[in-house]
């Protein structure tokens, strides 16, 4: 799979939207059908290109949220930013049957496969869950028991992307632990964390440095920077901490 996913020359392909579904009030998943799609690895992304009638083009990157699988389908999950140029179109105006251009799969650094092993520490903020979800879905599909912990920061419970599926993965999977922190609004009697991810939280949730976890951190740039720095300060090996910054607001 790795071989086939990486061998081809990258080209822009035309994808068709075959299904759409809302994950939260501001986040929508798009199921795309991409003729000739060579397959992907968990953690990879695509570049999406939109072209206006006057020829103006805008390009953005989106992680592939679906697990690697045979076939021509893949899922992107897009958070709508009110003042954004591309995301309000993708997660607002796009309809089933619409087409868009994409290039991928991209990336050989922020990727994970069962053979790479663990223990795994996944840390996400907002839509940063997307590439990590591909890893969790792959792990589940493979029936893997690689010890895995996810620490996921959202503003509120209703903004937690894939909430039901995460519950299901924990209930039906093996050796998976999911911790949420809700930074803005918490339901009554919320027993989980309710602050931004900090060093104390990472000390409680992360594996001890001597267990040598492999860590993937993804989300808005400020969150990724602060989590990676805290982990290094706690004694985790910098080369086993992989980051994917989504930019200033992508979260």
């Amino acid at each position: 799979m790795a071989g086939t996913a990486l061998q081809r020359r990258l080209t822009w392909r035309v994808a068709e939207v075959v299904d759409l579904g809302d994950e939260t009030p501001r986040v929508r998943s798009l199921v795309l059908s991409v003729p000739g799609w060579p397959g992907h690895l968990a953690g990879q992304h695509v570049d999406v290109r939109l072209t206006a009638d006057d020829g103006y083009q805008a390009e953005r990157s989106y992680s592939i949220a679906s697990a690697p699988a045979a076939g021509e389908r893949l899922t992107l999950t897009v958070e709508r930013l009110a003042d954004g140029e591309v995301s309000p179109y993708l997660a607002g105006e796009l309809r089933a049957g619409d087409k868009l251009e994409l290039r991928g799969p991209i990336g050989g650094y922020f990727v994970w496969d069962i053979a790479i092993g663990g223990p795994l520490l996944l840390v996400a903020g907002g839509s940063g869950i997307c590439p990590l979800m591909a890893m969790l879905r792959l792990r589940q599909a493979a029936g893997s028991d690689i010890p895995t912990r996810l620490l996921y920061s959202s503003r509120s419970l209703e903004e937690v992307i894939y909430r039901n599926e995460l519950d299901r993965l924990v209930a039906t999977g093996t050796a998976l632990d999911v911790r949420l922190t809700l930074t803005r609004d918490q339901p009554e009697r919320w027993a989980g964390y309710h602050r931004r991810i900090d060093t104390d939280m990472l000390t409680e949730v992360a594996w001890a440095p001597n267990e040598r976890p492999l860590t993937f951190v993804c989300g808005p740039t400020p969150l990724v920077e602060s989590v990676a720095e805290s982990l290094v300060n706690l004694g985790h090996e910098p080369t086993r901490i992989k980051t994917e910054r989504f930019g200033p607001t992508g979260g």
Binding site: Y109, T221, E244, G247
Partner: peptide, 12 residues
């Protein structure tokens, strides 16, 4: 430092 990305974002 708030706007930077990883080299991965230019991989395509």
């Amino acid at each position: 430092q708030d706007v930077r990305l990883d080299g991965n974002a230019a991989a395509g």
